[in-house]
């Protein structure tokens, strides 16, 4: 039985705790409370990834007075930080237990920090400092790169899965559904659909890769948003997901934040 989670619930530190429970042989996100404490399972290192922050956010919106605990990976903790900064969750109402990811998963994700700040479960493994996939794309001729993207965008069925699963897509109205901006009847949607989403991820995407994992068309979305992150870091020195700092797009700005070069 998971002692730490049990303790938090029994002590009344949290009203509920989001962790995992084996269902049909797979770990499945589960909300544990004082009522179902006996269903808690020992921690295991798995590859199963879910939009657990989305579940937490929905629950917290429904019960703003309650405090929740949550078991988080490195990327999910970065997402939590962004949700705090964008005033979607209150830090004093969330308690985090951290788990480290396996080396295999970190390599698959090309993850820059496959562990949270404080690790309660598992042992930290080496981060991946540079995305090979993005490097490859950057080295292509622009025209070839454009064709490469179009050949992928071509398969988009506009299911909005990438948005729906994204932990930092929290708006209640979405530009992707703005019919004048992105004509609704068009399938596949044109490049602007993907670029509009990419713009919204500037200063926000925490590189969890769930979008790419969920996309039924297998579009390499993560590479697109990894580049978005590189741009934001290059131009503004901001890395989404850090505990402090603010997205350069969330305030008008200081002189020093203006990108250099001709204006």
């Amino acid at each position: 039985m998971n002692i730490k989670i049990k303790q938090l619930l029994e002590d009344g530190r949290v009203d509920g705790f989001w962790a995992y429970k084996t269902t049909h042989g797979f770990p499945f996100p589960w909300l544990f409370t004082r009522e179902n404490l006996d269903e808690l399972e020992p921690w295991q290192c798995t590859k199963a990834r879910y939009p657990i922050l989305k579940l937490l956010l929905a629950e917290a919106r429904n019960h703003p007075d309650k405090t929740y605990g949550v078991l988080l990976r490195g990327c999910e903790e970065r997402g939590l930080h962004e949700l705090f900064k964008w005033n979607q969750l209150q830090p004093e109402k969330v308690v985090v237990l951290g788990q480290a990811c396996s080396q295999g998963l970190a390599i698959e994700c090309e993850c820059s920090k496959p562990f949270p700040e404080e690790i309660h479960y598992g042992t930290p493994v080496d981060p991946v400092v540079e995305s090979r996939k993005v490097k490859e794309l950057e080295s292509m001729e622009p025209e070839a790169r454009q064709q490469w993207w179009l050949s992928h965008f071509n398969r988009c069925i506009r299911c909005h899965g990438c948005r729906d699963i994204c932990p930092v897509c929290f708006c209640t109205e979405c530009s992707l559904e703005h019919n004048a901006l992105i004509p609704g009847e068009k399938l596949p949607p044109d490049t602007s659909f993907h670029l509009v989403r990419a713009i919204h991820m500037g200063g926000r995407c925490i590189d969890c890769g769930l979008c790419e994992e969920v996309c039924p068309a297998g579009i390499p979305l993560r590479s697109l948003y990894k580049e978005v992150n590189l741009l934001v870091e290059d131009i503004f020195g901001y890395k989404p997901g850090a505990a402090d700092g603010k997205s350069p797009f969330s305030f008008l700005g200081e002189e020093m934040l203006l990108p250099s070069g001709p204006r």
């Binding site: 622009p142 025209e143 454009q146 670029l195 978005v228 741009l231 350069p248 700005g253 934040l257 203006l258």
Partner: peptide
């Protein structure tokens, strides 16, 4: 006062994004 600060931030970012999507 600082509306154009936002403009330059957005344009710089958008330039990079367009470039990555293969547009000049």
């Amino acid at each position: 006062l600082k509306g154009n600060y936002m403009t330059v931030k957005r344009v710089k970012f958008l330039e990079g994004l367009l470039q990555f999507a293969g547009y000049d």
